[in-house]
Amino acid sequence: MLDDTLDNRAERLNQRYRHHAASEVLRRAVNDPDLGRVALVSSFGAESVVLLHMVSVVAPGLPVLFIDTQMLFPETLDYQREVAAQLGLTNVQVIRASQQEVALTDPDGTLHRTSPDACCNLRKTVPLERVLSGYDAWITGRKRFQGGERSVLEFFEPEPPTRLRVNPLSHWRAEDVQEYMVENNLPRHPLVAKGYPSIGCAPCTSPVKPGEDQRAGRWRGSEKTECGIHFIGGRMVRGKVSA
């Protein structure tokens, strides 16, 4: 009998799609019974439009979950509406922490200064988990070239205890992202031209200087490198590393 642990499901899917291009991984994954109910989680950030465009082509009605932390740049909110309309995405769901949660935990909006992890948990992780509890898998735009904990990403990875994550662009190079945007005439996030290659919440994102890592402007001056939605039980979930 097939051992259907989460790790084995991820390994089976990685073997199944190991020679497929990103668009085919996405096209097939949204209908693969080994994944179940799937949603895309998108920040509508600097490179998000690539995956959003792919979804608009293969499954425009796929749930797209957008986390509005209520601390985003106004440009991001405008861009989200523009891209969703231009691409014809019909199932964008805006996710927020409740007013009660914010009032209890961050009443004066300064939690990001004293505990950025707690702020991300309040405004991103908890609201997203509430919605993702109804899904079996979710699609991310993470890529190996972004470095750090992302450098070992596979197409599919386990997210204990029960979900899988799909990373269709995991093997893409930075050049591939830019070429896809140009070839498909996709709108750019307006902050990219102002020196923001990676865009999060306004208080915790700064411009990046030439030669710096593209995520250097996220939580600058701290050891924090991820917002929290890619952590499980307080630890980073990494792709499988070969021995």
Rank of each mutant, 00 (worst) to 15 (best):
124 K>A: 08
40 L>W: 07
6 L>C: 09
225 T>L: 01
140 T>F: 08
131 V>N: 03
116 P>T: 05
199 I>M: 01
158 P>I: 04
47 E>F: 10
44 F>C: 07
183 E>F: 03
55 V>F: 05
240 K>W: 11
18 R>Y: 14
164 L>H: 04
133 S>M: 07
208 V>E: 01
169 L>M: 10
234 G>S: 04
242 S>N: 10
117 D>F: 05
111 L>A: 06
147 G>R: 08
53 H>A: 11
12 R>P: 08
66 F>H: 14
99 Q>D: 15
61 G>V: 02
127 P>A: 09
210 P>H: 03
58 V>Y: 05
4 D>Q: 12
41 V>P: 01
211 G>I: 06
108 D>C: 00
39 A>G: 11
192 V>S: 04
43 S>K: 09
194 K>P: 05
66 F>Y: 15
210 P>G: 06
172 W>K: 02
121 N>D: 13
24 E>W: 15
26 L>M: 13
72 L>D: 05
193 A>P: 04
223 E>W: 01
51 L>A: 00
169 L>Y: 03
33 P>W: 13
219 W>M: 00
242 S>M: 01
94 V>W: 06
211 G>S: 05
16 R>Q: 14
26 L>C: 14
41 V>R: 08
172 W>Y: 06
100 Q>G: 06
164 L>G: 02
134 G>A: 13
51 L>P: 04
29 A>I: 13
197 P>L: 01
170 S>L: 03
67 I>L: 15
33 P>I: 14
151 S>L: 07
151 S>G: 04
224 K>W: 01
56 S>R: 06
226 E>W: 05
156 F>S: 03
156 F>I: 07
46 A>I: 07
14 N>W: 15
192 V>E: 09
170 S>F: 10
235 R>M: 00
92 V>I: 13
138 W>L: 04
192 V>N: 00
170 S>G: 06
137 A>R: 06
130 R>F: 07
125 T>A: 14
48 S>T: 07
126 V>R: 10
58 V>C: 12
67 I>S: 05
106 D>A: 11
211 G>V: 04
52 L>N: 05
69 T>N: 08
6 L>I: 14
40 L>S: 05
220 R>E: 00
221 G>R: 02
91 N>H: 12
15 Q>L: 15
